[in-house]
């Protein structure tokens, strides 16, 4: 599905503020898949991701009076989905365990296997996903929000609670790391072909 542009979302935001359920439905349909994927990034558990996003929309409707028309509703939703995902994680894994790259394994050990729909397709795809996952947490977050969720710098800054300038630095750093990884990968391929 095509992503709605920011004007469209601003229009829906204004309508939702005036209690228009149709605008709410439009916004839900447009952002639900992307937000579930975003929540899954933290939880690695699809039913939980779906619950979190639905909860967030319920809250949005209940607090629709507080929608600030000039601020990005998209950033607001990503922020609450992120916070709730992290809360969910904290409730479902031992507090002593870090919430970083090991979280997936920790969840596996607890019996939450990643959803089969998320299985990766090719070797390069797998490598790319691996490299993105191995990026430092903040770089990864900024990169994914920009590249995959289509948020602009101010929106990402709102979600991550840093300045837009920092967001940009994170993304550039992420691209540099990925470039290095990709170069190595290609060289290894070449070597494998030669031998």
């Amino acid at each position: 599905m095509k992503e709605p542009d920011s004007e469209q979302i601003m229009y829906w935001a204004a309508r939702i503020r005036k209690s228009d359920p149709q605008a709410f439905d439009c916004l839900f349909r447009a952002l639900y898949p992307a937000l579930v994927n975003f929540a899954f990034r933290y939880t690695r558990h699809k039913p939980a991701a779906c619950d979190i996003v639905q909860d967030s929309f319920v809250t949005l409707w209940q607090k629709r009076d507080g929608i600030e028309p000039e601020k990005s509703l998209k950033a607001y939703l990503y922020r609450i989905v992120k916070n709730r995902s992290i809360n969910w994680l904290q409730m479902h894994i031992n507090r002593s365990e870090p919430l970083t790259d090991e979280s997936e394994n920790a969840l596996k050990a607890n019996g939450h296997a990643p959803d089969s729909q998320f299985e990766q397709k090719s070797a390069l795809a797998e490598s790319f996903n691996e490299w993105i996952k191995e990026l430092p947490e903040r770089q990864q977050e900024a990169f994914e929000l920009s590249r995959f969720e289509g948020l602009d710098h101010n929106e990402i800054a709102g979600v991550m609670e840093v300045s837009p300038k920092t967001v940009n630095n994170h993304i550039v750093a992420a691209l540099n790391t990925l470039r290095e990884r990709y170069n190595n990968y290609q060289q290894n391929l070449k070597r494998a072909e030669e031998s």
Partner: peptide
Amino acid sequence: DHQEIWNLAGMYRERA
């Protein structure tokens, strides 16, 4: 080279 990585990453997005 940023551009290339940007495009490649988009193609290999793991997504439900």
